[in-house]
């Protein structure tokens, strides 16, 4: 019996999941619904505006931020299956409106109710058991924005620890960037590839057969490098494992005939 009305959660899917990995979005929906939330995915969302913000185009970033604020401010909670997009909304939206008290107020109000997915599950909803099964040895990549802007580190590990059959081995250089960095990876491809190669080498050193993470940007980058090197390591968004939906789509960067 529920003592309070269902939480209405607005899901900000993120542009990368929308285009590249819908399965991770549906996994997030499943996790939230399992936890008793009423999930709404507003159609008016596109992207959080990071590409503009990090490229110095403050005006476009503000326009997009206003759109996101307007779209999502009616929800009890806003959940984002990405550390960097959640960091954008929580940390950077209020900064974007430093000169505009009214919008800054609205940005702050939204920021307060915005959560990265694994933090929302563990710290807001108090979930510690996923009930999922995944057979394999995985290692976890902490995205830099999730880790440093939002302190996401223990939350996914806590949830993964409850996955039956999953063994987690830590990366030695878990604090290092994978070299994605948004536009950085195409502006400075040689640097970016060097960084992701270092990351891939350390992933391989763990002996894991699966790489998990909470940010699709990093995962596309790392999967791209792994697959270029012919590695069989499977890459998934952490939500896909927790929702037991790894079987619903081939691993990132793989297809039915990828081998």
């Amino acid at each position: 019996m529920k003592v309070r009305p269902q939480r209405v959660v607005g899901l900000l899917v993120t542009c990368l999941i929308d285009l590249f990995r819908p399965n991770a979005g549906f996994a997030a929906v499943k996790l939230l619904e399992q936890a008793g939330c009423d999930v709404v995915v507003p159609r008016a969302q596109t992207c959080c505006g990071q590409p503009a913000y990090n490229s110095g185009d403050a005006r476009s970033a503000q326009a997009i931020a206003r759109q996101v604020i307007t779209t999502f401010e009616a929800f009890d909670d806003i959940v984002i299956p990405s550390g960097s997009c959640a960091g954008m909304v929580k940390i950077h939206y209020p900064r974007l409106f430093a000169q505009d008290a009214q919008w800054q107020q609205r940005a702050l109000a939204l920021a307060e109710r915005t959560h990265e997915l694994t933090r929302f599950l563990t710290e807001v909803l108090g979930i510690s058991e996923s009930g999922a099964t995944y057979r394999g040895t995985a290692t976890y990549h902490d995205s830099c924005s999730g880790l440093r802007e939002l302190g996401i580190h223990a939350q996914p590990r806590q949830l993964l620890a409850s996955v039956t059959g999953l063994h987690l081995k830590e990366l030695r250089d878990w604090e290092s960037c994978c070299g994605f960095g948004g536009a950085f990876c195409v502006k400075y491809p040689e640097l970016s590839v060097r960084m992701v190669s270092d990351k891939v080498a350390s992933i391989q050193k763990t002996g894991a057969d699966t790489l998990l993470g909470g940010d699709l940007g990093c995962l596309l980058n790392i999967a791209g490098r792994l697959k270029r090197q012919g590695s069989g390591i499977k890459v998934y968004h952490v939500a896909e494992i927790l929702a037991e939906m790894a079987g619903h789509a081939p691993p990132i960067g793989e297809g039915p005939n990828s081998q």
């Binding site: 491809p189 590839v193 791209g224 490098r225 697959k227 297809g255 039915p256 990828s258």
Partner: peptide
Amino acid sequence: GQRRGRFRTLPFARGWTEGRALPTPA
């Protein structure tokens, strides 16, 4: 790219694909 799940190279994404495969969109 559905069959392999990734592109080896794409003309407008050379910066990416020179050192990495590009996972395909769904």
